[in-house]
């Protein structure tokens, strides 16, 4: 019997140490020291041998259910639906399919939001704080099933228009630079 006690304590502490990133709630994001927008890379192609160093992927936003749900709230409140219509597309392209014009990586989406894109996507530089852009980017990815199902949001208190993000089948990204940069 005694042998089991240290074992279970070990197991329990391993669980706790691994922590639960899904439930992490960063309520007071530290203000970024400087904008890193220009470091993100839109194209997967590089001249020369060494690709530019990519900035650290903000995994904390993609792994936290709270951050993704904040992204969902901001997506609606900043009226992204005005053009992208709940992800189905309208004036802007649909976001719940597998086709990514400017890349499916969080950095790509970040750049799209901050810099804007030709043909109508406005630039939100200075208008949306950087951490919120990452949250929105994480949410946008959840719309095509690119986030784990236990992190993606469930249904909203709205009319039913499409399956909630947690029920979206995973869409393998294709598109101009849709392939993940590894």
């Amino acid at each position: 019997m005694r042998g089991y006690i240290p074992l279970s304590i070990l197991l329990a502490s391993a669980l706790v140490l691994a922590g639960c990133k899904r439930e992490e709630r960063e309520l007071r994001p530290s203000p970024p020291a400087s904008e890193v927008v220009n470091e993100t890379q839109v194209s997967g192609l590089n001249p020369g041998a060494n690709p530019l160093p990519t900035p650290p992927t903000p995994a904390m936003y993609e792994e936290s259910a709270y951050a993704v749900s904040e992204g969902k709230r901001l997506f609606n409140q900043y009226n992204c639906s005005g053009c992208h219509a709940n992800g189905g597309g309208g004036i802007g392209p649909p976001l719940m399919d597998n086709y990514w014009v400017y890349g499916s990586q969080p950095q790509n989406i970040f750049t799209t939001i901050v810099e804007g894109r030709p043909n109508g996507m406005p630039s939100f530089r200075n208008r949306i704080p950087q951490y919120q852009v990452w949250e929105i980017a994480a949410y946008v990815r959840s719309m095509s099933g690119l986030l784990p199902k236990d992190v993606a949001p469930s249904r909203s208190d709205q009319l039913y228009v499409r399956p909630p993000e947690q029920s979206m089948p995973k869409q393998t990204p294709v598109g101009v630079t849709g392939e993940p940069q590894k």
Binding site: L15, G19, E23, R25, V68, V151, D157
Partner: peptide
């Protein structure tokens, strides 16, 4: 209790009224 230790402690009150405890306002698995 393991939930509480893993930051997944229920946080909508022992009565967990909706909509606060519902899908939109309590993200994650709490």
């Amino acid at each position: 209790w393991v939930g509480l230790l893993l930051k997944t402690g229920a946080d909508a009150g022992w009565f967990s009224y909706v909509p606060l405890s519902g899908p939109e306002f309590t993200p994650g698995k709490r």
